[in-house]
Simulated scan of single mutants.
Amino acid sequence: MNTKTPPFVFKQFTVKQDRCAMKIGTDGVLLGAWVPLDESITSILDVGTGTGVIALMAAQRSSAAVIDALEIDADAYEQAVENFESSDWGDRLFCYHASFQEFFEEIDDQYDMLISNPPFYKEDYKTKDNKRDLARFEDALPFTHLFYGASILLSDQGQFAIIAPYTEEKNIITIAAKVSLYPKKITRVKGTPSSDIKRSLFLFSKDEQECSVDELIIENSRHDYTEEYIELTKSYYLKM
């Protein structure tokens, strides 16, 4: 039986994902579409890139000359490199094979935008698939390490975008404040109008300011997507 995961085809690029523990999912695409990328952003780092999808999304709608990615898993790293090279933006995309801790301790570069769809499953969520666990586990890259590294790698005007469970919102804001990063925007995500808030999308910066908070609902009902979600993702998804 062939269990190979088929490539995920977007409007302007294709992502092979058969060698990655974490496949293309709503969280990554949501974050990649939501993160604000204007002309002032000349350098981007995708932390824990996996398939490379967020970096590819950034390349599609940003003119940033430098779009770097970081991946610790060897198979995922090789797959991200392959996906970058087969895209239209291979000259701007580069993937490092290293842990985030190694990277921020050794690299001198700073970035205008850091993006991360981090692992956020607690220690009690172990499966029989160690690679998937490494990709999903909070203990593989704790939020504390993530924000500490971000505080070092961000330029003075730099911003850091992440997605995380809504239940971690207060904890994340507290951790970020300890390294002088403050929420600029938070979008809370619900699957349907009647469902609980599931995710929070965060944009942090070094400036302490009033944070704007809004809400995004993905579907009115099964496969009936909201206008807001369609508007956000239509540049990427084939059927939007």
Rank of each mutant, 00 (worst) to 15 (best):
1 M>T: 09
3 T>Y: 11
6 P>Y: 13
7 P>S: 15
7 P>R: 12
7 P>Q: 13
9 V>L: 13
16 K>V: 11
20 C>W: 14
23 K>T: 05
23 K>G: 02
24 I>L: 13
26 T>F: 06
32 G>I: 03
35 V>W: 03
36 P>W: 10
39 E>S: 15
41 I>G: 06
43 S>K: 10
45 L>M: 13
45 L>Y: 14
45 L>S: 13
50 G>T: 15
52 G>F: 07
54 I>V: 15
55 A>Q: 13
58 A>Q: 06
60 Q>L: 08
61 R>S: 01
61 R>H: 04
62 S>E: 07
63 S>T: 11
70 L>Y: 08
72 I>N: 00
75 D>P: 00
80 A>Q: 05
82 E>T: 07
83 N>V: 01
84 F>A: 05
84 F>R: 04
86 S>T: 09
87 S>W: 05
88 D>C: 06
92 R>S: 05
92 R>I: 09
94 F>Y: 14
96 Y>H: 15
98 A>G: 01
100 F>E: 04
101 Q>S: 05
101 Q>P: 03
103 F>D: 02
106 E>P: 05
107 I>R: 10
115 I>M: 11
115 I>S: 00
120 F>G: 09
120 F>S: 03
124 D>N: 10
127 T>I: 06
128 K>E: 12
133 D>V: 13
141 L>M: 13
144 T>I: 12
146 L>S: 12
151 S>C: 14
151 S>L: 13
154 L>G: 14
165 P>L: 07
167 T>D: 12
171 N>T: 11
171 N>C: 06
175 I>P: 09
176 A>G: 10
177 A>Y: 11
181 L>A: 04
182 Y>R: 01
184 K>T: 12
185 K>G: 00
186 I>K: 10
189 V>Y: 05
190 K>D: 00
192 T>K: 14
194 S>H: 04
200 S>D: 01
201 L>A: 02
202 F>Q: 02
203 L>M: 04
206 K>I: 07
208 E>R: 05
210 E>Q: 12
211 C>R: 01
212 S>H: 12
213 V>A: 04
215 E>G: 01
219 E>C: 03
220 N>P: 06
230 I>S: 07
231 E>S: 08
233 T>N: 13
233 T>M: 09
237 Y>Q: 02
